[in-house]
Design a binder for these strands. Structure first.
Lengths: 125, 125
DNA sequence: CGGTATCCTCGAAGATACTG
DNA sequence: CAGTATCTTCGAGGATACCG
């Protein structure tokens, strides 16, 4: 899959992309997807665990992003109970696991920037 | 730089991030930045060359993204002429070059998806 | 417990025309 | 040639309340 000419585009699932990087970014881009995936990369997590790991996301947004990732077959959702209180676990699919090296590299680059200039703060919420 | 507790956030340049991946994504996220950077990774390019490599971006958006990348010190802009017609070249800074491995991995993952399911189309514009 | 529903804000990105 | 100006659209994400 190599674009040979400037007037060529990649077509995947009825969408057009100018470059293979944008295909990846369509799967993991946005404000929260890499964060969710990063938290799932070492094993499955329950909804509320994810919630606690991401103190500044809203429930609605987390829910929407999870659904999107599920639709893209990157994560899977498993329900363990039939009546409330529910137990739901999210984990990476085999396909989703192919993203781990990508997530690692993204995280490491961010870490290097942070080592020099960032500080850690607490959220009161 | 390691978050030890769920109520901790990273603070960098007056912005808050929940995770080191989101720091990186703030630098290279959005619809066009990785595409621009990918085209610059093998050397400098003139404005119009970039333009031609990205047939579906608008001038305005390309211009805004270039400015943002320049502000973040990821790319540099060099002007070679003082009067029109102008000659301007964009290239990665040393800092920007540290992103190359990240871009490669992102591009390779996208490529693997494309190999299986994507096709190449031509834009008429 | 694990979400949805509803409404809203705000900024990224597009369309088009124009300029030093 | 390399942009900027102006106006507009659109959808991601947020706030809040409620539900099975």
């Amino acid at each position: 899959m190599k674009l040979k000419c400037d007037s060529e585009l990649i077509k995947l699932n009825e969408k057009l992309y100018p470059c293979s990087t944008s295909v990846t970014m369509d799967f993991i881009g946005g404000k929260w997807k890499t964060v969710i995936l990063y938290h799932l990369k070492d094993g499955s997590k329950r909804y509320h665990e994810l919630r606690k790991s991401m103190p500044i996301v809203t429930e609605r947004t987390l829910s929407l992003q999870l659904k999107q990732l599920e639709k893209d077959k990157i994560i899977k959702r498993k329900v363990y109970t039939s009546k409330p209180p529910l137990k739901v676990e999210y984990s990476l699919t085999e396909f989703g696991k192919t993203l781990i090296p990508v997530l690692e590299v993204i995280s490491e680059w961010g870490n290097r920037i942070c080592e020099e200039k960032a500080e850690i703060v607490k959220v009161s919420k």
